[in-house]
Design a protein around this nucleic acid. Structure first.
Lengths: 202, 202
DNA sequence: CTGTCTATCTTTAGCAG
DNA sequence: CCTGCTAAAGATAGACA
């Protein structure tokens, strides 16, 4: 049974939402306890909910809780503002990061695809004339990278061979790092996924 | 390579502690975002640290943050107190729960061990006279349970046999549910672990 | 410091009792 | 409401670039 990936969105179903809330609230409180234990940092968590009239809080000591909140309250407005950004900026930051990662993955995917085309050409399965001008240029770049990799590998092998003249350089090593893929490498089988669900840092 | 389980204690090593702090702070903030998104609950997190002069907070909007904290502050003292317990009580609660689980697991382990003794006796590998008085009593309990299980199973099989007279009752079924373990069941191989690291609820 | 990778460990959604 | 289970997703320690 393949369970669906949980979407990061408001859970409409009342029962599920409540169950999720209970579980995740416990999870956050535990994480808070762990962080404060492992690193000895003051931390406060306040969770309001429609399920409890009184908010859940960490730490469970009123005084410790009050201390953290008070220190926050007493901060100069400038400091708060410096650290703060409004919700829009916050989301914008996530989008920016996600977009960067996305582009990076897209680029990698394109290079993988080009590499496959290259292998096709080498095997004679595809004629280069089937490609458009832009694709040919990209393919050229990939081939350049590939040849550079081969040359680096050759350098290493030749140096190794020179220093250790008693044994033959293992060709299997070359095969491992620059092997030509065989049929089971489908056209879409090795394309990477992209996931927006990433942690942001400050 | 078997990595060591991380102990839930203050991390002495400065570098590790800092790295852990950064990662886990991000983790908590992400969890907070997820919880507030999934269940649409107001939540506030404040993390002070020696690494940043200004605390890290969630949500990143000053106003939303202030709202949650203000609502907390405005609560009557009785309500706060009702929800609160001091650190000692908090830890005591965890210990109580953990102790219960521990006892339960210990009991299960003891029964498993007794069961193995019983099998040993049945096979003739161990003579019952090797056991102490208390162990004999426990063994008696286990055997009683076992025989009850066998009788229940027999009841079921006889009922099935009575209703479906066309087919022979499959003995393999009995073997599956009450099979006598063979040599590979080592004396300590099937003893359960106990882990104190559990989530507490309110 | 910041990001990356991967082997493990932890959390949790969904279901059953 | 709670507990337990399991498969899958997520978090993260440690090592490295």
């Amino acid at each position: 049974m393949t369970r669906n990936r949980v979407k990061m969105a408001y859970i409409e179903n009342e029962t599920s939402r409540k169950a999720t809330f209970r579980k995740r609230k416990g999870g956050i409180m535990k994480k808070a306890l762990e962080l404060s234990t492992l690193c000895d940092v003051p931390i406060a968590v306040i969770v309001q909910s429609e399920y409890n009239s009184v908010p859940e809080v960490f730490p469970p000591s009123r005084q410790a809780m009050g201390n953290v909140v008070a220190r926050w309250d007493s901060l100069p407005l400038v400091d708060k503002t410096k650290k703060m950004m409004n919700q829009e900026q916050f989301i914008q930051q996530r989008i920016t990061k996600a977009t960067e990662s996305c582009k990076k993955v897209a680029k990698e995917n394109k290079e993988l695809a080009m590499k496959e085309v290259m292998y096709d050409c080498l095997r004679g399965d595809t004629a280069p004339c089937d490609l458009g001008e832009g694709e040919l240029r990209d393919l050229g770049g990939v081939i350049d990278q590939y040849i550079k990799g081969l040359n680096r590998r050759i350098q290493v092998l030749m140096r190794d061979h020179a220093s250790s003249s008693t044994s033959v350089v293992p060709d299997a090593d070359v095969a491992t790092s620059v092997a030509m893929p065989t049929a089971e490498m489908g056209s879409s089988s090795n394309v990477k996924d992209f996931d927006l669900n990433q942690t942001q840092s400050e």
